[in-house]
């Protein structure tokens, strides 16, 4: 009896060890991204940035409302293309509880101001001079847009330029009910 038991224990322990090693193989081959990257469904990390006028904006100021968070640079053509559409819808959606916040990725302030004046933009243009928020949100391509719902969760990450129609749909998707 004891012997049979021993044999069984041996079989189980051998199986467990071999399974662990097999799992390690799978893990070693599949694991690639070492950095934790923000994903859809994550809570949007809070930050504090000043706009061109020097007013501080915190993401948490907009709790309970939707935030359309757009990262951009003046040299990037799709950024420039989508900005006027955002401007068109900005006021409407502001009233519906959806805020457009744009974050410039640390270019000279004058450059950003010239750009704004050129396109007559009125929404808040936050200035990330140390690229802190850019790193916080793991921004690689520009433009990248985060849709943040009233609960503060990221519902979508868009890593390319958007058409007018898309912008409207996205803005509607995070409107508080």
């Amino acid at each position: 009896m004891a012997k049979k038991n021993k044999k069984q224990i041996r079989l189980i322990s051998r199986t467990v060890l071999l399974l662990i090693m097999a799992a390690i193989i799978v893990y070693a081959i599949t694991s690639k991204d070492r950095v934790k990257v923000l994903a859809e469904g994550d809570k949007a990390p809070d930050f504090e940035l000043v706009d061109l006028e020097g007013n501080a904006h915190r993401l948490s100021d907009y709790k309970g409302e939707g935030v359309f968070l757009n990262f951009w640079g003046t040299w990037c053509p799709p950024c420039k293309k989508e900005m006027p559409h955002m401007e068109d819808m900005y006021k409407d959606f502001e009233a519906k509880g959806v805020h457009i916040l744009t974050v410039n990725v640390g270019e000279p302030k004058v450059k950003v101001e010239l750009f704004r004046d050129d396109l007559n933009l009125s929404f808040p243009m936050l200035w990330d001079k140390n690229k802190t928020v850019m790193d916080l949100y793991n921004i690689k391509p520009l433009p990248t847009t985060f849709l943040i719902n009233p609960e503060g969760k990221i519902t979508k990450i868009i890593k390319q330029g958007m058409s007018e129609q898309q912008i409207r749909e996205y803005l509607e998707s995070i409107q508080p009910k």
Binding site: I24, Y27, A28, S31, D33, R34, V35, K36, G106, K129, N130, K131, T132, M134, D135
Partner: peptide, 23 residues
């Protein structure tokens, strides 16, 4: 093996200009 777990291992590179302050 543990290096594959996020947070255990960071390996990044950056360029920093003279006079620049950066995260």
């Amino acid at each position: 093996l543990l290096r594959g777990i996020p947070g255990f291992y960071v390996d990044e590179a950056m360029w920093l200009r003279e006079g620049e302050t950066r995260n």
